[in-house]
């Protein structure tokens, strides 16, 4: 059997997710939401002993980027990106801007969403 016959995308990722996170399977510190904004405080080019994945995260957020967009951009599961980001946060290399999510509680914002969607 040739390689491509059994190693297609349906087989799932070839590299186990925890291989990208130094063996960690849970993020540390405060819970990260998918919409929390991640911003690099240092540039990846400095000698920081980063893994390639950590460096990729750092390169992609010179301005705040939602965690979920980093995951899509890096083609990594959100669980992996949460761990990478929580590591970078512990090392003081990224800052997290918490998302302010609006549920049913804020009528004014709900109305602004309706008006805004109508205007678009």
């Amino acid at each position: 059997m040739r390689d491509e016959e059994w190693l297609d995308s349906d087989a799932g990722p070839v590299v186990r997710p925890y291989a990208l996170t130094g063996g960690q399977t849970r993020p540390s510190g405060q819970r990260l939401d998918l919409l929390d904004m991640v911003r690099a405080v240092r540039s990846a080019s400095q000698n920081l002993r980063l893994s390639p994945e950590q460096a990729s995260v750092l390169e992609r957020c010179p301005i705040p980027v939602p965690l979920v967009e980093l995951a899509a951009d890096l083609k990594l599961p959100t669980g992996v990106v949460r761990i990478l980001v929580s590591d970078l946060r512990e090392r003081g290399l990224v800052a997290i801007h918490r998302s302010k999510s609006v549920g049913l509680s804020d009528l004014k914002i709900l109305q602004e969403v309706v008006d805004g969607l109508r205007r678009l």
């Binding site: 904004m37 301005i63 980027v65 801007h97 914002i109």
Partner: peptide, 26 residues
């Protein structure tokens, strides 16, 4: 980055530390 950047405009200029975190609706 081709499309991943969050860039709502002037709110996120060089002074990123003072950037406004937008209210998000999911």
């Amino acid at each position: 980055m081709a499309y991943g950047a969050y860039d709502p405009g002037a709110a996120h200029d060089a002074g990123a530390a003072t950037a406004v975190t937008p209210v998000t609706v999911k």
